[in-house]
Design a protein around this nucleic acid. Sequence first.
RNA 1: GGCGGGUUGCCCGAGCGGCCAAUGGGAGGGGACUGUAAAUCCCCCGGCUCUGCCUUCGAAGGUUCAAAUCCUUCACCCGCCA
Length: 417
Amino acid sequence: MSTPNDKKFSFEIKKSAENSLARVGTISTPHGDIQTPAFIPVGTKATVKSVLPGAMKDLGSQALLANAYHLYLQPGPDVLDEAGGLAKFMNWPGPTFTDSGGFQVLSLGVGFKKVLAMDAKTFRSDQVIAGNKERLAHVDDDGVTFKSHLDGSMHRFSAEVSMQIQHKIGADIIFAFDECTTLHNTRPYQELAMERTYDWAIRCLDEHKRLTDVRSDKPYQALFGVIQGAQYEDLRKKAAHDLGTMSSSGIEFDGFGIGGALDKGSLGTIVGWVNSTLPENKPKHLLGIGAPEDLFVGVENGVDTFDCVLASRIARSSAVYTMQGRFNVANAPYVRDFNPIDDECDCFTCTNFTRAYLCHLFRGKEMVAATLATIHNERFIVRLVDQMRQALLDGNFMDMKEEFLGRYKHRSGQSRD
RNA sequence: GGCGGGUUGCCCGAGCGGCCAAUGGGAGGGGACUGUAAAUCCCCCGGCUCUGCCUUCGAAGGUUCAAAUCCUUCACCCGCCA
């Protein structure tokens, strides 16, 4: 039987790069270790869509990240608690994370029915400022009121509620409840949101401490504070400083998440501000980032773990990664292409099936199309970050990065050139 | 043999004198997706020398300023009656 202190959370840095913030380390949790930098695939509702846990393990996933808001609505935190926690419930043999529901403040709030583009040029500020009557989430200083996207019922989240839910879900690493904003909220609004996030961070620490003491029979859960501040240097650094030094109820954050508005072009700069301000010896998780080129930027700016739905989401609509870039395997040129998706890939899909077969499955709307494409994309991303870790250990990260980016071209139809 | 219904762009299917190159679906072609309201969403989809022109709504002929829409004949399909 676990006791709160017998397998406590820890983070050990094994090697730091000389000319960047990049480092190699190990995060230890009650359910196992994570060698960092690492990509953590997302299984929002306690499953990576279309892929079984065993397959996720086989493709090299070290941990999975689920979502407190979604699991709260269905099946409910009590079910997860009775099941013995998230990992046991979904039969995942390793560490787990849960997001707090902070992202849903945005995605169901002002971001409702909007494309929350990472590219500042494709996101119009009036889309945010104009407001939106249909939105399902409304924020105030104390918390957020959600209208369930499943049945329309009303729900109230606060720092305390999010902690209570995440404690019942029982992931090894949980996140503080924050307000996620977009690239185009006004500066005064970003300041307001950041103040709330700061306020909620203290309340999360307090509630987390209380719940940890009450449930002393359960494995220790690590709490990560979330850094907001949008694109503003002073706000990001202030948030990083404040949360980095924050202590309440006698505890501090075990690690940090970097969230919110992150324009692709300034991703590295912003993450660099944050990570050079936060305490060096604690793990940093970059929330929601996972495009290949962005992962390099994150790693060299001190990010230890990433999570992102992109790999699995694009897989379900037939986009697949290769070392040369991504392409749509359901397109006409692949009907009779009997090569693997990527001949350099070692995944289950690439070692057993052809592009033509995947193309056929997608066109026939067969469910395994999503499974096979997701396995491939998740493997591609997990492996890419694994290769970054190895390159850092070998001292040739920059060469590895140059070589990859030199070959990898995201053949996007827009926003290029 | 008689009566009735039908034949529309790759497929299904609206339209029933002008606002019709012709509504919708599907298929097909392409794109997007970054703490998952997402097996979703968006765009294109007769041709061209493309703010206009040409050829299309079973075939041929006719009425009309104007026909996918009305009339005649023919071909094929589907019902019901003999």
